[in-house]
Design a protein around this nucleic acid. Structure first.
Lengths: 199, 199
DNA sequence: ATTGCTGAGTTAACAGTGTCAACATAACGA
DNA sequence: TCGTTATGTTGACACTGTTAACTCAGCAAT
C-alpha cells in the first residue's frame, strides 16, 4: 500500500518538509483567504494532530511557510537583478520583482506579511531570511546615494524604497490600484530618478 | 431592568449601530488579531444570530467596521491638513496622518485593509469612503505637479504617494521598520521634495 | 534475541467559531 | 383588536485549533 509506504517515509522525519510543501501548494491555488492547519494535514494524507510533532502550533507552521516564501522572494529578486549591469537597474529590478512576486503569489504573500510580522523569539535564520529582501533593496539604493550621504539619509531612502514596493504590492492585491505592470514599473523606476536629483 | 431597556432600544433599529460601536471598541483594545462575530454580539449583550438581522454575514459586519474606519481616517486627514496653508504642507500632513492613524489603531487598520480590499458589489457610499483617503492624497499631490503634467504622470505620482504611506504604515505595524515618528515624517516629507524637482 | 524506551503517528474529545432553521415576540398598520 | 412583519431567541451542524490518551515502529542495551 502506498499509504504504508508514505507513513514509513514520514517516520524518518520528512513529514515536516511534506507539510510545508503541500502548504505552499495550497497557497498557490487559493488566491485569497487563510489556510488551515487541518486542511494542510488532510491534504498531506496525515491526521491533524501529527502536525504537532513538528510544529508547536499553527502559527509556527505558518511562519515556516512564510520563511519559505521569503526565500523564494529573495531568489526572485536575485534572479531579476543578475541580468542587470548598472546599480540603478539592479535596484529597479529588485523593486519590481518584489511587487510582481506579491501579485503572482497573493496568498503566500499574505501569509508572509501576516505571520512574519514581529516574530518574537524566532530563530536567527528566520529573521535573516525575512530581512533579506529588504536588505537587497537597501544595498542597491544605498549605492545610488552620493558618497558623502549621511547614515540618516541612507535610512530614510531605504525606508522609502521598502515602503514603496511593499505599498505597491499591497494596494494592487487589495484592488485599490490596477494591476498594470507598466504603471507599477513606472512607479518604481521614477523612484530611482528621484534619488539621482535628491539633495 | 437595563437589559430590557436595551432590548427595547435595539428593537427600534439601533442594534446595527450598537454592533458597530462595540466592534470599534473591541478593535481599539485588541491591538493585534481578528475580531469575532460572536464576540461582538456577546459584548453587545445580544445573541450571536441577532447579527444576521442586520448583516448578511460576518464579512458584511467587518466591512461596516472598515467603512467606519475609513471615515475616521479621512476625518483625521482633513483635520491635519486644515491647519496647513500651502498645498505642499497639506500633502505632507495628509500623508503623515495616514501612517499615524494606522499606528494608533492597528487592529482597525488591519480590518480596513483586509475586508475593504476588492469589495465586490458594495454600495457606492462604501467604495467612495474607502477611496477618499486616497483621493485626498491624490488631489494634494496633483496640485504639486507642473501645470502641464500629463495624466499619466499624475497617475504615477498619485500611486507612488499612496504606496509610500500605505507601505510605511504596514511596515511599522509589522515591526519591519521602527516606529519612529521623525523617521516616518522624514520619509513622507522627502517625497514632497522629490516631486518638486521631478521632470 | 528479547526487552524496553523513545519518537512519530493515531483516535476521541473540548471549546470556540460562522451559519442555518425553527421558534418567540414586540411594534405597528388594517 | 388582530394579524403581519421586523427583530430577537434557542438549538443544532460543520468546522477549526488544541489537548490527552493511546498505538506502535525502530533502535539500544543487556
Amino acid at each position: 500500500m502506498e499509504e504504508l509506504a508514505n507513513r514509513q517515509a514520514y517516520h524518518h522525519g520528512d513529514l515536516r518538509s511534506a507539510l510545508i510543501e503541500t502548504g505552499l501548494h495550497l497557497l498557490k491555488t487559493k488566491a485569497h483567504g487563510d489556510i488551515g492547519l487541518r486542511e494542510v494535514a488532510r491534504e498531506t494524507g496525515v491526521s491533524a494532530t501529527a502536525v504537532y510533532r513538528h510544529f508547536p502550533d499553527k502559527d509556527a507552521l505558518m511562519r515556516a511557510l512564510a520563511l519559505a516564501g521569503y526565500e523564494k522572494l529573495f531568489d526572485a529578486q536575485e534572479a531579476a537583478a543578475a541580468a542587470k549591469s548598472s546599480r540603478e537597474e539592479s535596484f529597479r529590478a529588485t523593486g519590481q520583482a518584489y511587487v510582481h512576486f506579491a501579485v503572482a503569489n497573493p496568498a503566500l504573500f499574505g501569509v508572509m506579511t501576516k505571520y512574519m510580522s514581529d516574530a518574537p523569539g524566532e530563530e536567527a535564520r528566520a529573521r535573516a531570511a525575512q530581512a533579506r529582501p529588504g536588505v537587497s533593496l537597501r544595498e542597491n539604493i544605498a549605492s545610488l546615494l552620493p558618497d558623502g550621504a549621511s547614515k540618516r539619509a541612507q535610512d530614510v531612502v531605504a525606508i522609502q524604497a521598502m515602503a514603496l514596493v511593499h505599498g505597491l504590492a499591497q494596494l494592487v492585491l487589495g484592488g485599490q490600484i490596477p494591476n498594470d505592470p507598466d504603471l507599477i514599473n513606472a512607479a518604481v523606476d521614477q523612484f530611482g530618478n528621484w534619488r539621482r536629483v535628491q539633495d
